[in-house]
Design a protein around this nucleic acid. Structure first.
Length: 687
RNA sequence: CGCGAGGUAGAGCAGUGGUAGCUCGUCGGGCUCAUAACCCGAAGGUCGCAGGUUCGAGUCCUGCCCUCGCUACCA
């Protein structure tokens, strides 16, 4: 702590503008980043807290096409929503930019050109699906078709969401362009590749050897896993019309890969901010006495620890992140947060439902932050943390002190002449808190820090309970002066130390105490007087209010996946009818009655189940994606319809020799198509 | 046998070789200044399972099981 960097550049992951912000984003990235930067400012450090909207990429153009809008309309809308909710929530960015702004185009293109001129890239040609009608290449997510594994009719080009298998777009049966609806063809295209393999040593030395002990295990382990498996060259351009044009010869009709341009957004946002401040941006990215920290979620580790650093390193004189404290994920009531299933708590809705209670959500998400593993957010915990910690411990302590001060001394801080040993002990205990908090905060342990803060309020409550000023006022009034004087010092310390965690509360408490605005973090450890005798404080006012069961119940109800028939009908139409086939084609298919002899889940998969099926004399192994709908035991003995002459295919190393016929009901549950009649015998043919 | 992280009281977490801890919840008591708040005490754990190393293992080694991620609208 004796020496610290001259300045800090702190980034928070750029939110992707195809949806609003939810509690997962807040807990994983924005709250920890905001706490960290508020703390640094409280210590008087020079900080640039940088963020912005990430507005390129396939998902946005897909969403735009699906909703019949332009990408620009989508990003303008969500940039507005996100920007406003961050502002109201108190995430105090120094600059919140957009990757669609000119400064970002220039910056990203310039870095691309530098890398190109240094000969860093490799150019490679490959075959990709091409939509003749739309005259463009199709990114994986622009192709749907029948999954070759589970026969799900709407698998994407990179993955089937039904069985979870990873796919190549070229493997899909009957691929279809989501743009024109037409059948794509194969066409050769070339792309610029960042040869990460050539930077293996660089990553090895920098992270695996240099940050073995100061980076979080999840981050370090993830990087190690990538490096141990051998880094691969990665294409950094795409054949799309939405994005930043590739600024070199041959780059016509191509754009930068969104993950190439997005992190550069940190740099362009810094430039934009510095220009507005009238200062030079370069020290924030190119000076060795700057500490760069990226706050991200665990899914971004590879981009921030490998790809972006390689870009910075290869470009030239940029510094590398000092730390990348990635958090794990937050679940909601035991389930993964999901936009499409509307399983989320949206920030803008929270702000409407709980006005002026930003700090409650900040506190709950900090106290239960997924720092070392995935954690669960529940509304009952939210209520409990508010009612039993913020209200009962913190708010109540402050209120007790203020009410007593009002009652006994008309709101004037009493004299400190007759301090007992206990009073002195409390006053010196206060001095130890800034150091404890700093230790936690400097090592990115925000959950621990928030609990240390709460300990200060606990200390206050215990002190009051032990000292019993309400009893002593009757016969030892001079001692009560010392007690309330000391208790008020705790309140003042709380006001200052709370600022990073509970900025709204800190502001309110400072105003209630009429605290000297010059009192700062570092004073707490040295100054004996935080709020002087004779100082007048305001009338008591509650800092937090109880959250009632009804409010929690209302939030829970909100979470129920809402049945909106018109929307569901619109969003999940019946599977499109397939083209007619001839009787001859149908006749080629050999359907038979099969009996399930055994069933077991396929290891390391969610949805796949391996069956042993009796077909008369013969027994076959068949894989089917039903594990989420049935337990293996329940299926043994069941009669099913089997397509027996489907070409065998290896799935997860197991050869599947046929296919089970399944239907899907309106809830999405898979139903076996099977002969109900117990007399249907195994192996008999179906026509 | 793909790789990474996690699996410690009802819940959330700390604890990396030396008598299992913290917060919330539960139960009992105290107090009454305070938002039925606060303070004290108690109950509650075979530290995922099985082996091994060690005088001694939650902590080190080996194997296995489970959860999450690497792979989707997600941070």
């Amino acid at each position: 702590m004796s020496s610290h960097p001259k300045r800090y550049t702190v980034t928070a992951a750029l939110p992707y503008t195809n949806g609003p912000i939810h509690i997962g984003h807040l807990a994983g990235v924005y709250i920890p980043a905001d706490i960290y930067t508020r703390y640094l400012r409280a210590k008087g450090r020079s900080v640039a807290f940088i963020c912005g909207s990430d507005e390129h990429g396939v998902a946005i153009s897909l969403k735009a096409k699906k909703e019949g809008k332009t990408p620009q309309e989508i990003i303008d809308h969500f940039d507005g929503v996100i920007r406003a909710s961050f502002e109201e929530f108190g995430i105090a960015f120094d600059n919140y930019s957009r990757t669609s702004r000119a400064v970002h185009y220039e910056t990203a293109q310039e870095i691309f050109k530098i890398l190109d001129s240094k000969g860093v890239f490799e150019l490679n040609a490959s075959e990709q699906l091409y939509d003749e009608a739309a005259q463009q290449f199709l990114a994986d997510r622009f192709v749907t078709g029948t999954c070759p594994i589970c026969q799900h009719p709407e698998a994407y080009g990179d993955q089937c969401e039904s069985c979870g298998s990873s796919l190549n777009a070229t493997e899909l049966i009957a691929p279809k362009s989501t743009i024109s609806g037409g059948k794509p063809s194969l066409k050769t295209t070339k792309h610029w590749y960042l040869p990460l393999d050539r930077y293996q040593d660089f990553i090895q030395k920098w992270i695996l050897e240099g940050h073995k002990n100061d980076w979080k295990p999840n981050v370090y382990g993830q990087v190690k896993s990538w490096v141990d498996n051998g880094l691969q060259a990665r294409a950094v351009t795409r054949d799309l019309d939405w994005g930043i044009p590739v600024p070199v010869e041959g780059g016509e009709n191509k754009v930068l890969y969104v993950w190439f341009d997005a992190p550069i957004g940190y740099i362009s946002s810094t430039k934009e901010w510095a220009a507005a401040q009238g200062i030079d941006w370069e020290p924030f990215w190119k000076s060795d006495d700057t500490q760069l920290v990226h706050f991200i979620g665990k899914d971004n580790i590879v981009f921030h620890c490998i790809i972006f650093p390689v870009i910075l390193h290869a470009t030239g004189d940029y510094i590398l992140p000092e730390n990348v404290p990635a958090n794990e994920f937050l679940n909601l009531e035991g389930q993964k947060i999901s936009t499409s299933k509307n399983w989320a708590v949206w920030l803008h809705e929270y702000l409407d439902d709980f006005p002026d209670q930003q700090d409650v959500l900040r506190y709950v998400l900090t106290a239960n932050a997924p720092e070392t593993k995935d954690n669960d957010f529940t509304w009952s915990e939210f209520q409990a943390r508010n009612n039993s910690e913020l209200v009962a411990i913190y708010g109540n302590f402050v209120n007790r002190v203020m009410v007593l001060t009002q009652k006994y001394y008309k709101g004037s801080v009493p004299p400190a002449q007759n301090l007992s040993d206990e009073d002195q002990a409390v006053l010196s205990a206060i001095k130890s808190f800034p150091g404890k908090l700093e230790k936690s905060l400097e090592s990115y342990r925000f959950r621990e820090a928030s609990q240390e803060l709460m300990q200060l309020a606990r200390l206050g409550n215990k002190y009051l309970a032990d000292a019993e000023p309400w009893k002593r006022i009757k016969n030892q009034p001079e001692q009560v002066e010392g007690i309330l004087y000391s208790a008020l010092q705790i309140c003042a310390a709380l006001a200052v130390l709370s600022e990073p965690f509970l900025p709204f509360t800190a502001k309110k408490l400072k105003s209630l105490l009429q605290l000297n605005p010059n009192l700062n973090w570092d004073d707490l450890a040295v100054s004996a007087v935080l709020i002087p005798s004779g100082h007048q404080i305001a009338a008591p006012e509650l800092l937090f209010k109880k959250i009632e069961d009804e409010q929690i119940e209302a939030q829970r109800l909100k979470l129920q996946p809402q049945e909106k028939p018109e929307n569901i009908a619109h969003e999940t139409p019946l599977a499109a009818k397939k083209p007619d086939i001839s009787f001859e084609q149908f006749e080629k298919m050999d359907f038979r009655v099969g009996t399930i002899l055994s069933a077991e889940k396929v290891r390391k998969t969610n949805k796949l189940m391996q069956f042993s099926i009796a077909l008369g004399e013969e027994t076959r192994t068949i894989i089917s994606g039903v594990a989420e709908h049935y337990s293996p035991e329940a299926l043994v003995g069941k009669k099913v319809t089997v397509l027996t002459n489907l070409a065998a295919r290896k799935i997860k190393g197991i050869e599947s020799q046929g296919m089970l016929l399944l239907g899907e009901n309106k809830d999405g549950k898979l139903i076996f198509v099977g002969p109900e009649d117990a007399h249907a015998s195994s192996g008999s043919s179906i026509a």
